[in-house]
Amino acid sequence: MKYQIVLLLLIVSFGGCGQRGTSNGNMQEEKPGTAVTLTHTAFGKIEKEIILSATTMYQNKSVVSAPIPAFITEVLVQPGSRVKAGDVLYRIESKEQHALGNGNHAVIPIKVERDGIVLDVQQQAGSYVTEGTVLCSVAEAGSLVFEINVPYEQQRYAHSGIKCMLELPDGTRLTATVHAPLVTMNMVSQSERVIARAKAPFLPEGMNVKAVFTENDSSSKGLILPKSAVQSDETLTKHWVMKLADNGTAVRVPIEVGNSNASEIEIKSDALSPQDRIILTGGYGLEDGAKVVVTKEEAAL
């Protein structure tokens, strides 16, 4: 009898362990939801942007040259120096005076004729130069223009009087006005050179700049989403978003897209509404029907 009781207790114990093992196994199989953040669509309109290349250029420049064969005794400017009419740029000494060793008693000052900015300094102190050698070049500060290369088929975007946005390499944006085009055309690219003017700080000549034009669109406002919420295939021909369903799962919704800018994109299809909760982050690679956990949700506009 005693052995039967012990055996019965062992059977009950093993049965409980098996149930706990089964229970633990079921818990391990249940995967936690993917953490995501949510956003909503908003009504708006994104203008189509046409981006062209541009270059800084000073239209009024003067070249300062050596009037006689001479030695340069002193250089008083450097590239970027602002000068006024009558300022001394260089001091030179004729080779005869230099041979006599008269020092600074017979130096010849080289002065600038008008206000401007020194673009380059080509000769340094101690150098010997012949007559006509270029010493430096000076540009009139107010003559800075932006030379835009406009493909001939895109002339309608850059005609005289139209406004555009000039984006500098550091991200600074300047509002500019297009003026009359130049009479020459690049034979290789078949692009026309158009001059635009803007109120700008001192900029070096030859800087590459983006000229951004917007195309007027008569279409009405539509839905807009952050770009990071929209996914696409490798060919960029199919687009979709992941929408949060009422049961806490992600649902894939195919969409059509329109114009876009650096941060937002238009939704042209009727697949979404402002009430939909769209996955903003964490949705990349999610399968249709995947369980998610919301960590943050942007307020609907």
Rank of each mutant, 00 (worst) to 15 (best):
K95Q: 11
H159R: 14
E47D: 13
D246E: 14
L10P: 00
E298D: 14
V212K: 05
T73K: 09
E298W: 06
A262C: 01
V134G: 02
D233H: 00
G18L: 15
P109L: 06
E153D: 14
A271I: 08
K210E: 06
G248M: 05
V257K: 12
S228N: 06
S189G: 03
N24A: 13
R82G: 02
M242D: 04
N26G: 01
K163P: 00
V12S: 12
K163M: 09
K268M: 13
I5H: 04
R82V: 10
E264F: 10
E167S: 09
N24F: 13
I11V: 15
Q122K: 15
T130L: 11
P201F: 10
P204R: 14
E131R: 14
A299M: 11
P151V: 04
G44S: 01
K163L: 11
S232K: 02
E153Q: 11
R82S: 12
S137K: 13
K95V: 12
P254N: 10
G258L: 12
I72F: 04
V63C: 00
S62K: 12
I148A: 10
L225H: 03
Q154D: 10
R252A: 00
V294P: 00
V251P: 00
G18E: 09
N247S: 08
S23P: 00
D288A: 04
V145A: 11
I279E: 03
V292Q: 04
S263Q: 11
E167K: 15
P254A: 03
Q123L: 13
E153Y: 08
R252S: 07
V178A: 12
F213W: 06
N186S: 10
T56F: 06
V194D: 05
S160V: 09
L8K: 05
A262H: 08
P254D: 13
E266N: 07
S94W: 09
S219Y: 11
K61P: 03
V83S: 04
I279Q: 10
E47Y: 03
Q59Y: 08
I68N: 01
V88D: 11
D288Y: 05
V253L: 02
V12K: 06
A300K: 15
P67E: 09
L76A: 06
E167P: 00
T249F: 02
G248S: 06
Q123S: 12
G126W: 12
P181Q: 09
I72S: 02
S62D: 13
L7C: 07
T295L: 14
A196L: 09
S191W: 03
M165R: 15
L76Y: 04
I108T: 12
Y157L: 10
K199N: 14
K61M: 12
N186K: 09
S81D: 09
I72V: 15
M57V: 09
S137C: 02
E192Y: 07
G21R: 11
P181N: 08
L119S: 05
V292I: 11
V112E: 03
V36H: 00
L38I: 04
T172E: 15
A66I: 02
L52D: 10
A125K: 15
T235N: 01
V212P: 01
V251L: 10
D270I: 02
V6C: 04
P67C: 07
S23T: 07
T73R: 12
A176V: 09
G25I: 05
K227Q: 12
V292E: 07
A271F: 08
T177W: 10
T133P: 02
K2M: 04
G16L: 15
T41M: 04
K84C: 03
S218I: 07
V293T: 13
V64G: 02
I255C: 03
